[in-house]
């Protein structure tokens, strides 16, 4: 009796084994395709890893280039300002000279007026005086030249004012630098997670994210005065209590 029970159990186990083999036959191709997939995926992951690594290593160069652009534009701006200062100083000297000449012209007019009175009885002398006055009169021309010179001086000053664009673009570039530094840090972390051996950890430590306090990412060269008007409104119409309320 016991012998037949054992046989039943044996057949049960054999059946289970048979099902297992059947299942195995079904699952083996799946495992095989999984292995094949893994074989295909590993080089792909290595490629991704290498691409990320490569991209991350190029970022410092991009940062240096941005820094170089900032330095170059600052230097160029200073040079422009130096030249504008020289031009402005020269114009100021010309302005002074013209003003002196205008003063002399005014004095000449006064003398001519006095001479006309003195030579009142001598028609020929008065006629010659009028002719001399007409021939030597340069007051109007001097006034026009002075106006042109003053306008040129004002234009030169406006060039200086327009150079505020350099500070604003520097802040925009600093914001871009901040952004790419953040990207580099994330890429480096990603590479480290994939394979620590593929990136020099020392390099990662060198990544310094620029301090956001040193630039305004929203900086823009905009001649629209709406932002100034907003500041004026807040300054003029808001009491301290209201400011406190808005701030809290």
């Amino acid at each position: 009796m016991k012998h037949s029970e054992n046989l039943v159990q044996l057949f049960d186990r054999l059946n289970e084994l048979k099902y297992l083999f059947h299942y195995g036959q079904k699952i083996i191709p799946i495992i095989q395709s999984l292995i094949d997939f893994m074989k295909d995926t590993v080089p792909m992951l290595e490629n991704i890893n290498s691409s990320i690594s490569d991209s991350a290593s190029k970022i410092p160069k991009a940062q240096n280039q941005i820094h170089d652009v900032t330095s170059a534009t600052e230097m160029a701006t200073i040079e422009i300002m130096d030249i504008v200062d020289v031009i402005s100083n020269d114009i100021s000297k010309i302005e002074d000279e013209i003003s002196t000449l205008i003063a002399k012209e005014e004095r000449k007019k006064e003398i001519f007026t006095k001479l006309r009175i003195m030579f009142g009885g001598n028609a020929e002398a008065v006629a010659l005086l009028e002719e001399l006055d007409k021939e030597t009169a340069i007051f109007n021309q001097l006034s026009q030249i002075l106006a042109t010179v003053q306008k040129t001086k004002s234009d030169a000053y406006n060039i200086t004012i327009a150079l505020q664009v350099q500070d604003i673009t520097t802040q925009q570039l600093a914001a871009v630098n901040h952004l790419i530094t953040s990207v580099q840090q994330r890429l480096s972390n990603l590479v480290l997670e994939i394979d620590e051996t593929d990136i020099d950890v020392k390099d990662r430590k060198k990544i310094v994210i620029p301090d956001e306090e040193t630039f305004n990412a929203e900086a823009k060269y905009d001649k629209d005065d709406s932002r100034q008007k907003l500041a004026d409104q807040l300054l003029n119409k808001t009491s301290q209590d209201e400011i406190d309320k808005l701030f809290s």
Binding site: Y157, I161, A162, Q164, V165, D167, I168, A219, Y221, D222, K223, R227, Q228, A231, L234, L235
Partner: peptide, 8 residues
Amino acid sequence: YIVKPFTP
């Protein structure tokens, strides 16, 4: 408070 770019 002045917002850049400012005018003279």
